[in-house]
Design a protein around this nucleic acid. Structure first.
Lengths: 140, 140
DNA sequence: GTGACAACGATAACGGTTCTCAGTCGCATC
DNA sequence: GATGCGACTGAGAACCGTTATCGTTGTCAC
């Protein structure tokens, strides 16, 4: 998880994004977060570190990263969006209702269930999202 | 689906909510919607009908109804919340990416999968949400 | 070094939602 | 029906997360 600045830069380049200093700052800060963060919080952290990153840049960078599929955007706080660095394969989320910890579930295996459920209502499924809410090992 | 005002009033009372004129207006308008609506749109409809409902009341009523589990709150439009009158049993949503139609899936049957997935990461699942995105019969 | 263009920071603008407060309604009681 | 009281409501201001604007700065090819 302690991805060096170099490898983060490569990650960006690989996705056709210019690896500027600001983008690396944002990405690096994001990589430090175990859970999801709001744009505002992330900006706060960057200010603490005396990174002169502007709020607009944080939003721009997050939008760019999510467009490239490098970050997940979750909106369970009602209105406020949360961002999280994620793997780029299909996955779901497990989230702790007490401490708000977020864990990725890589194994899906729901494709059959999904397409069957969709078919039953005349739909053709193209994607699906699953969110499991519960208590993590530390909180239960 | 054409629930009469009387039965809507009973629905409210049954949930410990006073059935005022305004709340019935909102609920009635919500019952007419096939899909999910934003609070703003709903307010617009109510104004067209010359119902003098204020925007604040629409928000208050929607918050109340969602708290009582009578409406689902979906937030897939990024920031803007969508409301939808729903059955009060556990269910999931199927949504059309073209026309934004929303259909409830009553049959879940994922409980085993959910608790297994949660257990694998040390979690205990208390709830889960599934959203299937695809194309409905009319759009595909 | 120079030019072209992408990225950036500060801040204003925007838009959905919530708060405030004075007025009104619903209902129990007489 | 009149009265009283607390819950509810409407109008609009305030709030706050996000996006747009614009002048400046950084990046890269030449």
């Amino acid at each position: 998880m302690k991805a060096g600045r170099q490898s983060l830069a490569e990650l960006l380049e690989r996705n056709g994004v210019r690896a500027t200093r600001r983008r690396l700052d944002v990405l690096e800060e994001l990589a430090k977060e175990r859970d999801d963060v709001t744009a505002q919080k992330l900006w706060g952290r960057l200010r603490e570190r005396d990174t002169g990153a502007g709020l607009a840049t944080v939003y721009r960078t997050l939008a760019l990263l999510s467009e490239k599929g490098l970050v997940d955007v979750l909106s369970h706080h009602g209105g406020e969006q949360c961002y999280r660095l994620c793997g780029d394969e299909h996955h779901h989320h497990l989230l702790c209702e007490r401490c708000h910890r977020v864990v990725e579930i890589q194994e899906c295996g729901l494709d059959d269930w999904v397409s069957a459920a969709a078919k039953r209502h005349g739909f053709v499924a193209t994607d699906h999202r699953v969110e499991i809410v519960g208590l993590c090992a530390d909180c239960r």
